[in-house]
Design a protein around this nucleic acid. Structure first.
Lengths: 152, 152
DNA sequence: ACCACGATCTGGAATCATTCCGAATATTGA
DNA sequence: TCAATATTCGGAATGATTCCAGATCGTGGT
């Protein structure tokens, strides 16, 4: 436990961030939770741990962690942003149109050939490229089927 | 002029949509404007033409056109959705972090190899895949440089 | 041409994630 | 320990989009 805290502390300092309770808590939640959490989900868990955190603080912390490279932010239109622990590899995301949940998808071609646009206008600079797959997850497909059956 | 209207009318009917003033106007705006327009920009142009259209109508029409396959909707987090005339090819988009403007990028590899995920969990279904490049457009890069110079 | 039935449009309120603000507090280097 | 300033707080504001209920319009059948 203690070493875990130490570890998180070290990583915050290494990233040039001050060590605060909200930051430790948020970082810990991101590390522990598998999958991708919304700011609200994260806040709920942090609340359970600290007793109190402002909405603002959670957003601030997440922004700081994202800029520092400790977290990755995946924003998908129509759904609140989700955060995952930062991993170096360039993987993609599948977003369910139903529940908005996001799962990781390994890059189909390994070397990410799509991520270097061939013809970019002069003066334009790409700093990030992402691939998003849209569709229906297994669970939503199941409940949809159920719903449709009920309707008919 | 008349033939242009006729043409739009025909396309609406062919798509199984009723022909209304807002729909003709919105479709016309999308066809004529190059680039990608926000709902608000489209509304302004439609207003100039018809004198009046509700915000709702514009959203409804855009949704209908999108579903019918006459328009394509590009949603980018942090910026209002943008609409473009539907073209069959699968091209990608570059989104400027500064102004939010969106430009088309031809698929780097032609055959879109990235768009077929290799390992998708059982029961999941992909209906769309998109590649988004994030960065700074030439114009914003220029004004940023200016701003920074002013600051120092 | 006329009617009736939906589909569509209107106007205004509501939603909801996220951000802005100024004041209060906590962390860190000296 | 103390000052400097990075974070946090709480509450209000934002802004694109959607919900609602009623008015209006387009269309297929008479």
């Amino acid at each position: 436990m203690v070493s875990q805290i130490r570890n998180l502390e070290t990583r915050l300092r290494a990233a040039g961030l001050r060590v605060t309770a909200p930051r430790l808590a948020v970082l810990e939640v991101i590390e522990r939770r598998r999958g991708h959490s919304t700011a609200d989900e994260i806040r709920r868990e942090v609340l359970a741990r600290l007793g109190t955190v402002s909405v603002q603080a959670v957003y601030d912390v997440l922004a700081a962690l994202t800029i520092a490279g400790l977290a990755r932010c995946i924003e998908t239109p129509g759904h609140p942003a989700r955060y995952e622990k930062r991993v170096g590899d360039n993987h993609h995301h599948f977003v369910c149109r139903g529940c908005g949940d996001t799962i990781d998808i390994d890059c189909a071609t390994g070397a990410a050939p799509c991520l270097t646009p061939k013809a970019l206008p002069r003066g334009f600079a790409v700093d990030e490229a992402e691939v998003t797959y849209w569709g229906i997850c297994a669970e939503c497909a199941r409940s949809n089927a159920t719903t449709n059956r009920e309707k008919s």
